[in-house]
Write a protein that binds this DNA or RNA. Sequence first.
DNA 1: CGGCTGACGACCT
DNA 2: GAGGTCGCCAGCC
Length: 118
Amino acid sequence: MSPYRPERHGPVRVVGPGFHEKVWACVRRVPAGAVTTYGDVAAALGRRSVARQVGWALSALPDGSEVPWWRVVDGRGGVSRWGSAVARRQRALLQKEGVRVDARGRVVGFALLRWGGG
DNA sequence: CGGCTGACGACCT
DNA sequence: GAGGTCGCCAGCC
């Protein structure tokens, strides 16, 4: 996908030469109404073990980014940091796309909505 | 350099 | 299912 550009992505506190770009490029391929996991993104990048860094990279995204970070949940379909402001925003964005999140922060029908998990 | 911090995940009890 | 531990590794100080 397109490389990192300040005019496109805005000022990001961390501007990695490659890792962030790869994460964002991968996440941008997730269609509306579907979800994926940090682990899946990490695996797509070639290293299953960097799931944590994937989340960390998404946390560096500026507001208004075109990267659909809210479609990324953890391996059990749960919204990370449930209870936080970010989590509330994530749930709102997901529900806007028809993805329901239960009271415990879990995506309803996760297995079916999971991208690639059909 | 070394130490610290995490939108995680696998594993164990 | 719930709680704790450990490994993971990019980026920052």
